[in-house]
Design a protein around this nucleic acid. Structure first.
Length: 424
RNA sequence: GGAGAGGUGCCAGAGUGGUCGAAUGGGCUCGCCUGGAAAGUGAGUGUACGGUGUUGAGCCGUACCGAGGGUUCGAAUCCCUCCUUCUCCGCCA
């Protein structure tokens, strides 16, 4: 959520900043709603004050044993008027709140302006592209050749955009997640957490999935419903919702492996081949809660932590910065890590690392006590995939494939696979 | 799922309709005392929002005692619904 104060004092500036993000703010309408709110709030508070005053004098009169009937007559009309004004005020306020909840975060100044992914800018590249003396297969073919990806079974069980992995591939999938968690906890100072996969609406609202993106999430039929997490970012960031954190406890670094559930509404026909885009996938997520002044460097750190996984695995990748039009709702700056897939002869997204400034913190009421002011102030939150396990598995398959379709096991994974060197 | 008991400020814990933002104790902050410290002692110590303002000192007001609704001139206190914690029973990994 944006700072309502800022929207109050300078809506034009907010509108201008929101425009490159593809959000048109109707400044005139906002202004009108805002002045209505102000008017009503003053009125309501004035009536409440009158109510309190007269209630007090009635109490005093009664204590003195006086006749309170005349006083009662005096305030009779107050309740009615107050009720009317209050409900009008609440209505205006909730409209304003609803509006605020659907406005995206402001991009930081250094984010490139643009409309879509074509305007993203490459920052750096790492690794050497693998050379094959045969035509490399993509992961779908490799899965078929080895029989370790069973798409048919998944369709039978659930439908499209699900997968069944078998044998060595399933094991490598597990090994990858374990390996990532170990790196982040042992080398980068993250605390591993185990999290709920079903969360309530408040939690989904805190990180920005609700109310605007309700259609993207799976929900239970309970009343009220619970939502299947689309990423561990949701429960993990909300760990600090409503908290006032000790300055000494910052920064906080959390990591967790969870399944992620996404309806992928609006991506019909996109990535239908293979297991790039699934309704369910595993991800190791990184979350940081930091002091505002540290959030920029924290994003560089966090992105580096995610990159280190691919460096350990020795798989080439590049880092790009997303332009204003391609960024996620809550993000103020996003770096995507794209991994090299020889079977597709291109880079594909494997991680997305974002700093959300105080956008999520304001929604969640996540604060820290700033020793300088002595007051609670909003924290900054960051999140990033470290990494998407399914896509990392694809990257290993395609980069480590051999002519017969078998796949070499990267050295760092072997300890997690009982020393196994090849899966086939 | 059934029965019972709770949810109050940083913590503990009073408060069963009126002057309660809330006693008391602890903690914390600042000061006194001390050579220094302990003990003792004095004062202070929530959040959000609105108004005003010499604009981030202050002053005035509103809301908040798990959440939401209701009764009342007036609710932390009464009623209803929900959430949640604990104990016992059932069930279960």
């Amino acid at each position: 959520m944006l700072d309502p104060q800022l929207l109050r004092t300078d809506p034009e500036a907010v509108a201008a900043a929101l425009k490159p993000r593809g959000y048109e703010l109707d400044v005139a309408a906002w202004r009108e709603l805002e002045s209505r709110r102000k008017e009503l709030q003053i009125h309501v508070q004035e009536l409440q004050n009158q109510k309190n005053q007269s209630a007090k004098s009635i109490g005093q009169a009664k204590a003195r044993g006086e006749d309170i009937q005349p006083l009662l007559d005096e305030v009779r009309h107050l309740g009615e008027e107050l009720g009317r004004s209050e409900s009008e005020f609440n209505e205006v306020q909730s409209r304003q709140q609803g509006w605020l909840l659907e406005m995206p975060n402001l991009a930081l100044p250094d984010v490139p302006q643009g409309n879509d992914e074509n305007d993203n800018v490459e920052i750096r590249k790492w690794g050497e592209l693998p050379q094959f003396n045969f035509e490399p297969r993509d992961h779908v073919e490799l899965g078929e050749v080895t029989g370790m990806i069973d798409a048919q079974a998944a369709v039978k069980l659930s439908g499209t955009r699900f997968v069944v992995l078998k044998s060595g591939l399933s094991r490598m999938h597990r090994a990858l997640a374990q390996f990532m968690l170990d790196v982040h906890t042992q080398e980068h100072g993250y605390m591993e957490v185990y999290l709920p996969y079903l969360v309530n609406a408040a939690t989904m609202t805190g990180t920005g999935q609700l109310p605007k993106f309700e259609d993207d999430a799976f929900a239970t039929t309970d009343d009220p419903p619970l939502y299947l997490i689309p990423t561990a970012e949701v429960p993990m960031t909300n760990l600090v919702a409503g908290e006032i954190i000790d300055a000494d406890d910052l920064p906080m670094r959390f990591t967790s492996q969870t399944p992620c559930f996404r309806r992928e509404a609006g991506s019909y026909g996109k990535d239908t081949r293979g297991i790039i885009r699934q309704h369910q996938f595993e991800k190791v997520e990184l979350v940081q809660i930091v002091r505002p002044e540290n959030s920029n460097s924290a994003l560089d750190d966090l992105t580096g932590h995610a990159e280190s996984i691919l460096q350990h695995l020795i798989i080439p990748y590049r880092v790009i910065i997303l332009c204003t039009g391609d960024m996620g709702f809550a993000s103020a700056r996003t770096y995507d890590i794209e991994v090299w897939l020889p079977g597709q002869d291109r880079y594909r997204e494997i991680s997305s690392c974002s700093v959300c400034t105080d956008f999520q913190a304001r929604r969640m009421k996540a604060r820290w006590r700033n020793p300088e002011s002595g007051k609670p102030e909003l924290v900054h939150t960051l999140n990033g995939s470290g990494l998407a396990v399914g896509r990392t598995l694809i990257a290993v398959m395609e980069n480590y494939q051999q002519q017969d379709g078998s796949i070499k096991v990267p050295k760092v994974l072997r300890p997690y696979m009982n020393g196994q060197k090849i899966i086939r």
